[in-house]
Nucleic acid binder design. Structure first.
Lengths: 115, 115
DNA sequence: ATAATACGAGTCATATAGTACCCACTAACA
DNA sequence: TGTTAGTGGGTACTATATGACTCGTATTAT
């Protein structure tokens, strides 16, 4: 939802683009299977409008809608790979920089290191 | 959301598991970067509780929350790969089965083919 | 061309997601 | 050991996502 803070229009462009891309992907996958919006929405137990919003890249749809859509497409594994620790190169970099589990705020932040 | 139809508890297990996995992945990525819930939620412009729900695998959070979290983690590309057409083997199979773009309901459905 | 279906979009009612604020527990650091 | 920060969970409130229904248009197949 995100109301006062990040409104739907205030999303970072990369975030908005990612949602739109996933929506387009789902639409393509549905058409490949020869399913109409009504058919797929019916098996998802949501309304056609909700599925249409997901495919249109509406950031305001719920995670459950995305997950159920992927379930119908037999593509939930794709979702499990999102932010997977083994491919988080940025995180692994940070992890190597500091051994303590919690950084104290007064210490020299990692960002100040330059090399 | 999904109210009357698929309630939060009625999600297919694979869908629920996928959401939980993504949540765990995000939590791991956050801790690797040494960020507290408050810090990351603050930069996402959402409350700590909302981010915590995302990490806990609550299916009822919005897509925007996921996308903004991935944006903070510089991982939006992972989301773009979800349901990517080039890796949709099931869809490519269906596509090869029928050339007409829309299947008429009275025709023999694809599902009835056995081989 | 024509009939049938798919689709986008609008309205209304209602469940609920997200916020702001709160307290309690836990883990880490001195 | 004491102290501070991180975290989980509760409550009340408000904006809104979704369902249900409808109409109009576009697209398809015959």
């Amino acid at each position: 939802m995100i109301r006062n803070s990040i409104s739907t229009e205030g999303l970072p462009s990369s975030a908005r683009q990612a949602i739109e891309t996933v929506g387009n992907n789902i639409r393509t996958a549905r058409k490949r299977r020869g399913w109409s919006l009504d058919e797929m929405a019916g098996s998802m137990l949501v309304t056609r409008k909700t599925l249409s919003r997901l495919e249109s890249g509406d950031p305001a749809v719920g995670l459950s809608v995305l997950a159920v859509a992927l379930h119908c497409l037999i593509m939930t594994d794709d979702l499990k790979k999102v932010a997977a620790p083994e491919s988080d190169s940025v995180g692994l970099f940070y992890e190597q920089q500091r051994l303590p589990r919690r950084v104290r705020k007064k210490q020299t932040p990692v960002d100040d290191l330059d090399f």
